[in-house]
Amino acid sequence: MTDPVMPHMEVGLAPETSLASRLLASRSFATGAIITAVIVAMALVSFGWTPYDVTKIVIADRLKSPSLSHWFGTDHFGRDIFSMIMVGARNSIAVALVAVGIGLAAGVPLGAWAAARRGLVDDALMRFNDLVFAFPSILSAVMITAIFGPGAVNAIIAIGIFNIPVFARVTRGAALSLWPREYVLAARVSGKGAARITVEHILPNIANLLIVQATIQFSLGILAEAGLSYLGLGAQPPMPSWGRMLFEAQTMMAIGPHMAIFPGLAIIVTVLGLNLMGDGLRDALDPRLRGKG
């Protein structure tokens, strides 16, 4: 019933003003943002400049260990690994980013619709979600790319499809918790319809949650893309990709372990950066979670 004593908490609904300051104060967000910015910058710079041409094969330079001239060494074709990592970043980021976009564009409207309509629409969406979640995502991504042909575009689709139910579920859950809120009731009393209420009152107030989820899916997308490329189903040669570099390194493990180490580190650092950013965001948005990691 009533409770005049306990302080009320606006979970995830903190206003913008204090958010910026809380984010700046968050060490994990700052670290994550810097790492992500560096990786993105590397990817952007690679369009104009890389230390070496990543398509040029120089047999004389093959399997060089890291040195001043080749920071991360060279591969079995004599290509500069640092340059390949720079170009590979493009690919990883593009695939993961577009896949998140697909998830957001399809999942958010679906989830919001289900929460607004309830009933049959909602049941159908939940059933659809159950179904998609029943397919192990890696397996299905492999299936899709293998069937429709390997390549970055199909990798994006394969990863993007599995982002849809994730965003639909997050949106639906958050929207369902907002619909009984009194400000939504007040909007209904004011004659506003479901679509208008969703746009005006629901979506802006779950945007925070969606941003956090988007960072998580982004980092999962990087990992998934690496897995697909490793199996030869991602970006095709001569375009370098981190996963394919690892695949090529596998046969060279005994003589050139550096070929495996650096692309792996690139993946780890990128994913770490995104995860730290996501954690920082989540903590800043949800005062309840602060300090819980």
């Binding site: 009320h8 400000y183 007040a186 005006e200």
Partner: peptide
């Protein structure tokens, strides 16, 4: 209508002017 919980009664992203004018929407 006026509801019980003064903390959940307002969209936290809108200013008072807009909040109060909501019933004039139609």
């Amino acid at each position: 209508a006026v509801f019980q919980d003064p903390f959940a009664s307002f969209n936290p992203r809108h200013k008072a002017g807009r909040l109060v004018a909501e019933p004039l929407f139609l």
